[in-house]
Structure formats: C-alpha cells, structure tokens
Write a protein that binds this DNA or RNA. Structure first.
Length: 858
RNA sequence: GGGUGAUUAGCUCAGUUGGCUAGAGUACCGGUCUCACAUACCGGGGGUCAGAGGUUCGAAUCCUCUAUCACCCACCA
C-alpha cells in the first residue's frame, strides 16, 4: 500500500491512504471476558454499560498498536483522517444503512436455525465458522420399534448412526429414503427413542442416502441443518435441548444441566448399559469452529436479524464480470463469484455488547418496531408511545466495515471528500477476507453510492503462520516479527524484503537471511552515495546546472544513463501491474550489478585524476563523470523511494543541501524541479524520457564487460593473485572491434589489472607468450584475449582448455544434430534456423582455435 | 465430495505469446582488507524443470494421466 501510495504521489496523483481500524466485536469481547474471568467477575453481573466502558478503555489502550506498527513501517497515511468504525460519523452511517435496507424490506427479523457459539453465546454467520477436520466417532445406536411385532431386517429395532449422540435427546423422527425397499414395511410406523422413551415416527425423505450406514437417519430438527429442513417438510416437532451456553436444558430430561460434551458421554454410557450401542467406529469429519473463540459451533434455533443478500449481489457480480472492478491476480475472482452466486442471507445480529446496537426500538405498548437513523428513538412510530426499548443485540462488525469506503468520507452527507475520493483506485488486502469484507464493500458501495468502491483489488500473499507451519511436514522458515526485523535490519530492508517476496498468488515463507540480504543492499546503496558525495565535493552547483557535456561523454556515461532510463521504464511497468517483486529485483540489479559494480569502478580513474587536470579535456571529462554520478544518484533516490523511504530521504537531503539552492527550476537535467522540493517523497517521479535508450552504448559496454570478464576469469582460474598485473594481448581480424577495445584501454588496466596491453590485428592467433612462458586465451566474439603466464602454469592451462573444448564440442554436436533434421530447417522460422547456423559456425571456429591452442601447448 | 493453485539449484523463488548453453538472491567452494562498502570485491561449482505419456521441427512452457503439497468451498448422518 505504501509503495503504491508513495509512487503515485510522486507521479503527481492526489493520493490518499486513509488509515483506520474496526472494532473487532467478537475478538474484543473475548479479550475482555477473559480479563473479567481472571478477576472473578461475570459480565452479566457487571452490566452492559460497565462492560462497554471497559471495552472502550481497552480500545484506548490497545487499539492504536496497529497504527503504531504502520508508523514504524514508515507508512505515509493521512494520519489526520484515522477512523474507527465506532466513531460517531461511522455509527451514523451504520444506522442510515440499516434503516434504508429495513425500509426496503432487505433487512428482516426471523427465527431460523443458525450457527451458535456456546462460548460467546452469539450467532455467527456461515463465514465466521471454520470447518476443521477432527477425529471423532460414529456411534451406531439401536432404536427399538414401537410395535413389538414390527420387523426390519428380521429384527425389531433399527440402527442409526451419529457423530453427536447427545442430540438424540431432541430427536422427533427417524428418516429413510422413500426408494429404500428394505424399510418399506416401516412406512407409517413408529419407533421408541431410547433414554427419553418417546414414540417418534418414521418419515421418508430424499435427503437420506441409502448407501450411507444403515440408510436410517435420526432426525433432530432443532440441532442439525438437514434435519431442520426435514422437520419443516414433514411438520415435525422442533425440540430445543440446549441452553445458550451449550448445556442441556430441561428438554433433556435426566441430562438437563450437563454440558453438551458431558451429556454425550452420559448418553453413550447409558445406551451401552442398555445394550443399545451396536458398535462404535472411528470417524474423521469436518466440525465447525468459531473463527474467534475456537469453540465448536452448534446449530441452534433463535431469532435474529438478517440481510436479504440475493437482490443485493446481482450488481456486485456484474461489476466484476464487466470489468468495472478488477482482481489482481485475476484468479481470485473465482472465489468472489463462487461466494456471491451461492450467497445465503446474512445474519447480522450478535448477542454481544461491544459494537453498534441495532437501531430498532420495540414498542412496549403496541409491539411495533421503530427504526431510527438518530442515536435514540423517543417514541413509537406507530402509536406514539414513549414506552420504547432498543433491541438488545448489536451488529456484526463486518456490517460497519462494509461501509468503510464511504462512511469514512462523511456519508450520508454529500461531502467534498466523497466527491473527490469515491470511488477509490485500489484496495490492497488478503484473500481470507474476500467474503467478509471485499465482497460486502462492493455490495454496499453499489447499493448506496451507485458505484463500486474501488477499481482494482490487489490480493497480496500471506506469511505462513505457526498453525500452518505445524501442519507442514517439513520446516519452511521461521515465524518473523516485523518489528523485531525492523530493529535488527532497518525499516527499509524490511520493506524491501516484503516487497521482493510479494509474488502474485503465492504464500510467503520468510527467513531471517532474506532480511539480512536487503540490509546489505541498503548498506551498499548508502556507501555508493557516500562515494558519490565524497568525489563530487568540488562540483559546483553551477557545473551541475550547466549539465553534462554531450561531446565529452564517455561510453560508460552514455551506458549508465541509458540503463537508468531502462530500469525506470521497467519499474513503471512493474508497479502498474502490482509486480512488487519485479520492482525490487530491477532496482537491485541496477544498483548493485550495474551502477556499483561497473559504473562506479569505471569512473574512478577519471575522478582520481583531479590532481593533474592539466589537459582541459580531462577536466571536462571528469566534470562530466561527476554530473552523471549526481544525476543517477539523485534519480535513484527517487525511484527507490517508494520502497526505501528512509535511506533515500537521507541521501537525497544531502544532495539537496549541496545543490538545491544553486539549481534553477528549469534545469536541463530535471534535477532542479526535484531539488526545489522539500522532501524526496514529494519530488516528481523521474521521467524515463529524459534518459533515452542508447543501444550502441549498451552493446559496446556489454562487449567491454565480457572482455574484462575474460581476463578476470583467466586470472582467477590460473591462480594469479589480485596484487599482480598480467600482460594481455588482444588479437582479431576485426579492426573495428580492436579499435573499440583499445579505446577502453584504461578500463582494462583498472578493472582487469593488466600490465602491458597490446591490440593487434591478426588473422591467426600467435600462440607464443612472453619469453619463458605461454599465453592463456579466451575468445570474446571476434576477439581473442591472450594472457601471458609463467610456464609453470601450462598444465593448469591445458586442463582449462580441455574442459572448455569439451563443453564447446558438446554444444557443437547438439547444434549439428538439430540442423541435420530436415523438418527443423523446413518448418522452423527463418531467424531461428539462421541463429542455429551462426552458432554452428562460431562454435566450429572456436573449437578449431582451441585445438590449435592445445597443440601449441605441446 | 467439488474447486483453485503449486511442484524448477541445498533454501526461497523468477522464467511474458513454445525457440540461443533454464536464471536471480541466498547458501556453498576458491582467491582478496584493491583508497564507498568485508553488510565488500573477483572467480567458480551446482538443476533428468515432480513422474509417465501425448501434440510439435522444437516443451520448464500446451494437452492427458499419476503422485505429493497447500488453500478454498460443501448439509453426508
């Protein structure tokens, strides 16, 4: 989020990153209750008002932590706009939305089978229930037939299987499939519910799978979703056997008062004593748990408030289908579609205290409901009675979160902020809340603003957590605390690490070494800046303003300017597509691999020549290098800034201090307009157009680097110590190429540590080295590089050449084979075939040269 | 039970529409305190692209199957 915000701000956009938090109703409730338990206080004794007061205190103390963490990360939010879902303005938006939906009939109240958390004693939406695989049991229980003369499979009992035996206390039927001929004789008959000694009917329902177990299912309409459906269809009695806290109620007969799990054990024990347990199997199945308390959720009948979702999601589906809203990566839209297309009504009431109390007042006189946008309703809308009482329940936290994009901007008032910042450009979030938050924000945005709240949804990957790690067979990195990493490696390093591993659509496995790597990078950049500043002390602002002298630009100057333009373009493209890893990798490679490793090394010669600037040309060349150094350093500060705001600001301020005042706003390099800004964070994003591609310079540099690399490789492989110089002879039939390399003589001397350096036109190579020695050779394009070495190393050279020859011969073999296939030559595109032919020729001649060299060694 | 994504170097991952000898960082090995940086510099080794088939002149890339892993969804008692 911060990379995007900083990047777009520099690019001239009016950016707003609005920070804030929600009130996390259930999670907070759990924390407070835990505290209260430790103090031996019951929240019901304490009362609603005192509890809420306590929750506010907790919120004052801890609610800001996440904001502090954002600040630590250097996030450039507009802190003055920090919002909380229970702020007065946002609460007003909640009531307004509730009332409008209620008036349209899209919010209703009803009694249904819902997910119930016995620990928090509240309803939960389907999304708030997490299904986890648990190893349980499947108990097979005998239910005697009511009429002793009845028979099923020759016995006067049937067998039902269940994973929750205690629910049998609420059984009001036993079901089998109407097509199941085995049980045809039982149609219209009854059985006796053991323990309760209740006579319950057999019913027939398609829902029953004949293949599963005995094909007989116990039906507990009040405590199972399927059974609930069957209960409705067959007009069965709904017997609720549980109290809100999960203990068995008075309908549970002798088991009343027992906790549900205790009851389970007792029921099983009693059945066993009566010989009614046929068998017990191990059974692995999915069990719903509360995503906040972790408690096992019970299907439970209760009266709740619901949002009718079907009519609301139509537009939300269309918005993504027609591209008004775009998921990045696109694949997440499947998750979104699947949920919306199968969405069920949303239970929005919660039997808790911390949150938005439902804005409905019940009339004590006429029973009518009054829904109010105001904080309180004084009297009944229908009869005018002042004997009204607000609904006890509160709203699901996600109800207010769904309004965030407009409730934070002053809605329902028509504010300038709404006008300016709605809809937003991008939402950055995790996939786990696509249902909870993303989809519902789109639904509400479309409904109340007539427009989706954001154009792009960037779904970032998630760091693997402890739980997941435990489940993995092999260890995949450690759990990392970002604040600890900030302490150890610096904020910029942490930011870069996170971005570099932010690969689309996958999870993050972090290890501490990765942070260390980015710290090194930050350090590298810092040191390169020190180098530049140290070596440009005598560069006057006046010189910088005059800019670089195109006539005196050296190859490396042209190359690094072109490369800077290239990396800027690549970074623009990457950020446009939310490819944060690409952003970091491009930066890294440019800064370390090109700017530091090559450019800084290449200009040292010119910089250090300041004591002898006798020639005017040399002075000019030196000043050019300095101008380019400052130009690129300053530009780097800008393109690195979104991810590394701290080190870039520090460096940039140093540059500004030196040159800021001396430069005019229209300075030719584009530096002036930037340096007139107070901070790099508001400096303009560099325009790549100012750094046009220079293919000639890039091509030449590539060849130069290869040639220098060839000498270095020979040195290293032949064990020449870095302190010693080597004599080098470059030969080629290509006069132009030789001239080019010769023009770069000083670079060979500095970077390859060469002694005598000869460039010589030659058709054939001259194998002799210096007197008493020999030459080790390498080929770089049309040029042969020969490094003079003492005779003692001749065996090492032979081994080196033999190995190289083997490699080339195998390549030659493969190329020949390929070209020998007629269909390849016929069908492959011409350029591909030509490339192969060229390679064949080149490899062949290289092999020939190598063989000659080997023979030359004797 | 359905769906999605993955499987490439010891580790973490790149690899656009099939086409040079499959890359990076890190780890590893060898050599260096060379005046920005040892959090560094120079050089190097390391991969049957999960497996098997297929399409193609040509496959890490496209298709099928298999194996393993992860995640999401689902009312099988």
């Amino acid at each position: 989020q911060d990379v995007l915000t900083r990047w777009k701000r520099m690019a001239g956009c009016n950016t707003l990153w609005l920070p804030g938090t929600d009130h996390a109703s259930i999670a907070t409730h759990n924390v407070i209750e835990k505290e209260l338990r430790a103090e031996g206080v019951d929240r019901r004794e304490m009362g609603r008002e005192a509890f809420i007061k306590r929750a506010w205190q907790w919120r004052e103390e801890y609610g800001g932590i996440i904001i502090e963490q954002l600040r630590k990360l250097g996030c450039s939010c507009d802190w003055t706009r920090t919002r909380f879902t229970m702020d007065p303005g946002l609460s007003r938006a909640v009531r307004a939305v509730f009332k409008r939906l209620y008036d349209e009939g899209l919010i209703y109240r009803g009694t249904y089978l819902v997910n119930w958390c016995p620990q928090d004693q509240t309803v939960l939406s389907d999304e708030e229930v997490e299904h986890e695989e648990v190893k349980g049991r499947l108990w097979h229980i005998r239910y005697p037939l009511a009429d002793p003369r009845d028979r099923a499979g020759g016995r006067n009992y049937i067998v039902v299987a269940t994973t929750r035996p205690e629910t049998m206390l609420g059984d009001t039927a036993v079901a089998f499939n109407p097509l199941d001929e085995r049980y045809a004789p039982l149609r219209g008959k009854f059985c006796i519910l053991p323990l309760m000694n209740r006579k319950i009917p057999f019913i027939q329902d398609d829902l029953v799978d004949r293949e599963f177990g005995t094909g007989m299912v116990k039906v507990t309409p009040a405590h199972d979703p399927n059974d609930y459906e069957m209960g409705k269809r067959h007009d069965l009695e709904f017997i609720n056997i549980l109290n809100p806290d999960g203990s068995v109620n008075e309908n549970g007969g002798p088991y009343a008062g027992l906790d549900r799990f205790e009851a389970r054990e007792r029921v099983v024990a009693d059945l066993e004593a009566q010989g009614l347990i046929e068998r017990i199997e191990d059974h692995v199945h999915q069990v719903g748990h509360s995503y906040r308390s972790g408690a096992i959720v019970e299907p439970y009948i209760s009266e709740q408030w619901f949002v009718s979702m079907k009519p609301l999601v139509v537009e939300a589906i269309a918005a993504v289908e027609d591209g008004r809203v775009r998921f990045v990566p696109k694949s997440w839209e499947n998750t979104y579609f699947h949920w919306l297309r199968n969405v069920r009504d949303w239970p929005i009431s919660r039997q808790l205290w911390w949150g938005h109390q439902i804005p409905v007042w019940h009339c004590g006189d006429c029973g009518a409901l009054t829904v109010s946008e105001e904080e309180t309703a004084e009297k009944c809308e229908k009869c005018g009675s002042t004997n009204v009482k607000q609904d006890e329940d509160i709203l699901d936290t996600w109800f207010s979160s769904a309004l965030w994009p407009f409730s934070t901007m002053g809605w329902p008032d028509k504010t300038p902020d709404l006008e300016r910042y709605y809809p937003t450009s991008v939402l950055v979030t995790a996939h786990e809340i696509i249902f909870f938050w993303v989809a519902r924000m789109i639904v509400m945005g479309l409904k109340f603003m007539g427009d989706a709240p954001f154009r792009d949804i960037y779904i970032h990957p998630m760091v693997f957590d402890e739980e997941t790690k435990k489940k993995m067979s092999k260890s995949l990195g450690n759990i990392i605390d970002p604040l600890e990493m900030i302490e150890k490696y610096g904020t910029d390093a942490v930011r870069m690490t996170l971005c570099a591993t932010t690969i689309k659509g996958s999870n993050l496995y972090l290890s501490e070494e990765r942070f260390a790597g980015r710290r090194s990078f930050t350090n590298k950049f810092w040191n390169s800046a020190r180098f530049v500043l140290m070596n440009t002390e005598d560069l006057a602002a006046e010189d910088l303003r005059r800019g670089r002298d195109p006539q005196a630009l050296e190859l490396e100057d042209r190359w690094i300017l072109s490369a800077f333009g290239r990396v800027t373009r690549k970074i623009d493209a990457a950020l446009n597509e939310y490819e944060f890893d690409q952003y970091i990798h491009r930066l890294y490679h440019f800064v370390w691999g090109e700017y530091c490793d090559w450019y800084l090394e290449l200009v040292k010669g010119r910089l250090y020549s300041k004591d002898k600037p006798e020639a005017q040309a040399a002075a000019r060349s030196r000043r050019n290098a300095q101008v380019v150094l400052v130009t690129v350093l300053e530009g780097l500060c800008r393109i690195m800034h979104p991810v590394a705001p701290f080190v870039t600001e520090e460096v940039w301020q140093a540059v500004r201090e030196r040159y800021g005042d001396g430069l005019g706003a229209k300075e030719a390099l584009g530096l002036g307009d930037a340096l007139s800004c107070e901070s790099v964070m508001i400096a303009p994003w560099p325009s790549a157009d100012r750094f046009p591609e220079d293919p000639e310079a890039e091509g030449k540099m590539e060849r130069l680097m290869e040639a220098i690399g060839a000498v270095r490789r020979i040195r290293s492989e032949m064990g020449v110590p870095p302190s010693e110089t080597v004599d080098v002879r470059a030969t080629s039939a290509d006069r132009g190429e030789l001239d080019f390399l010769e023009s770069q003589r000083r670079h060979f001397e500095a970077l390859a540590r060469t002694g005598s350096l000869v460039f010589e036109k030659a058709e054939a190579e001259s194998p002799e080295g210096d007197a008493g020695g020999f030459a080790s050779t390498a080929m770089v394009g049309p040029v042969t590089i020969s490094v003079g070495l003492p005779a003692s190393l001749v065996e090492a050279e032979r081994a080196r050449l033999t190995k190289e020859l083997e490699r080339l011969e195998s390549l030659l073999e493969r190329t020949k084979k390929k070209l020998a296939i007629p269909s390849f030559v016929e069908k492959a595109p011409e350029n591909v075939v030509n490339a192969e032919r060229e390679r064949l020729n080149e490899t062949e001649s290289q092999c020939a040269v190598l063989r000659e060299r080997l023979e030359g060694l004797g």
